[in-house]
Amino acid sequence: MRRCNLILIEGVPGSGKTTLAAAIAGQLTVAGVPTRLVLEGDLNHPADYEMVAHYNALDFADLLRRFPEASGVLARHVEIQGDDRFVAYRRLAQQGAGLDDAVLAELAQHDVYETPSPETYGRLAIQRWERFVAEAQGGPVVILESCFLQNPLTVLLAKHNLAPAPAVAHLQRLSAAVRPLDPLLVYLWQPDTRATLEHAAAERPADWLNFVIGYVTGQAWGRATGQAGFEGMVAFYEMRKALELDALPLLGITTLAVENSDQTAALPAVLAHLEVGAP
């Protein structure tokens, strides 16, 4: 197999990311290649912040004062990086740490993805990826979906309405951070973005669609462009897809853009690129 420690899978919702991630992980495992598959939403995500709150040292001390009953749990589980304090609040709740709803609501407001400044978000994201790369070197092939382009671009473009140039500059910093892992970025796309999204909307629960429409059209980008509803969501993803396809050659890492209309083209293309025998 070709040297590669990290496979990143990206594309708009419905383009086939999860399916491809699972299929690659299955084939690599069968081929005897140690593999770690991480799906979107994993609360132990190694490279992304999944339901993690962020404070600086002063604000965290203030949090402990405001919630004395929770302070013991928070102080035990906080992750300290320099002046930054991180609390994986959803994971704590899942482990039955006994945080009440008021504390959880407060922590959710301070989710890394809710950080008011795009610069702070960008800094935290790069730090997270750098730590991940240091840990992942020499380990199993890690397969990640959505967290390399989709998550950063969605927050930078939809929430902050950042211009294309600084958004692409952030992706270039991410790319530089992961380069030691000899990454392969697989970008799945279909010519008709609307059809892809309609397909995803039909397959997923109504809550998902409402959440996404609200997220991408209800914040800075939606206010600036006046886009709303399903049409606004289509416009957002068409814009994001165009930006992503333009950015791919500028990232300086190996990329494989696959036209994945029939949802079956991607797996053989990736296996061939990796020089892993097909089953």
């Binding site: 999860t18 399916t19 991630a21 699972a22 495992t29 598959l37």
Partner: peptide, 13 residues
């Protein structure tokens, strides 16, 4: 289907 398949691959590692 997709989410369960992903989880299945994960769990069978």
């Amino acid at each position: 289907a997709e989410a369960i398949l992903g989880l299945q691959v994960l769990a069978y590692q």
